[in-house]
């Protein structure tokens, strides 16, 4: 049979493709749709948090930080409750990472503050003695445009029914508002102002007053949302 196949490239290729496809089909088809259902109470990212998440991807933070707490006592003691599938329902792409050069960040919002992040991003080794993390001073001067995040939020709302402008927990109020571009921008600024209130950098405060959001504000918004 094999010798027969080796003289007939078409059937050989079909054979290879079938043998190759088997695992993918068995692994993906049975419950692919169910796996990414949100937990009760899981909310999508606000536009500012989404902008921060895009910065997290841009700087490739996930090459050194995981967002996956495994169900071991040594991990739950260190990072908090182990991860559940539904918590990632709005993570496109997933950011579990594959290497912990730095600690896990899945629930960093529970135990680090805006103030801590501000110091740490500027001077990691000055905050955690011996840290090998690069300095991210440029995030204090670079300005983030929320257009990208807004475009992404609109896209996932329409295509994947991500619950923006929706009463998720049934308390009668919209949980994560999106609205028009102007409304989204206004929401982003009001969230940015809350964060900046806890920060020390004068230049960052000035930027917000001048209608610009420095990258550091967006990344802190994202860090604080990780709970």
């Amino acid at each position: 049979m094999f010798h027969w196949l080796e003289q007939r490239p078409f059937f050989f290729a079909v054979g290879v493709f079938l043998v190759f496809s088997f695992a993918g089909i068995v692994e993906i088809i049975p419950n692919f749709a169910k796996q990414a259902q949100p937990l009760v109470g899981t909310k999508p990212y606000t536009v500012l948090e989404l902008a921060g998440k895009n910065l997290y991807i841009k700087e490739n933070c996930n090459s050194c930080h995981s967002q996956m707490i495994r169900p071991f006592k040594s991990e739950t003691d260190r990072y908090g409750m182990y991860s559940l599938s539904g918590e990632y329902a709005y993570d496109r792409p997933f950011l579990w990472g594959s290497k912990r050069t730095g600690p896990d960040l899945m629930r960093v919002g529970n135990y680090r503050t805006t103030d801590w992040h501000e110091h740490h991003m500027l001077d990691p080794a000055g905050t955690v003695s011996g840290s090998i993390m690069p300095k991210y001073g440029h995030m204090f001067s670079n300005i983030v445009e929320i257009d990208n995040a807004y475009g992404e939020a609109v896209t996932v709302k329409k295509v994947f029914n991500t619950p923006y402008d929706y009463d998720i927990d049934g308390d009668g109020a919209v949980d994560v508002p999106l609205g028009s571009y102007e409304e989204a921008k206004a929401h982003a600024f009001s969230q940015a102002k809350e964060i900046v209130a806890d920060m020390k950098s004068e230049s960052v405060k000035d930027a917000i007053v001048n209608g610009e959001i420095p990258e550091i504000v967006a990344i802190i918004a994202y860090m604080n949302s990780l709970k």
Binding site: Q35, A36, G86, E87, R92, F94
Partner: peptide, 11 residues
């Protein structure tokens, strides 16, 4: 933006 979310995307 990825077509898959979270656990599915990881898979």
């Amino acid at each position: 933006v990825s077509m898959y979310a979270g656990t599915n995307d990881a898979l």
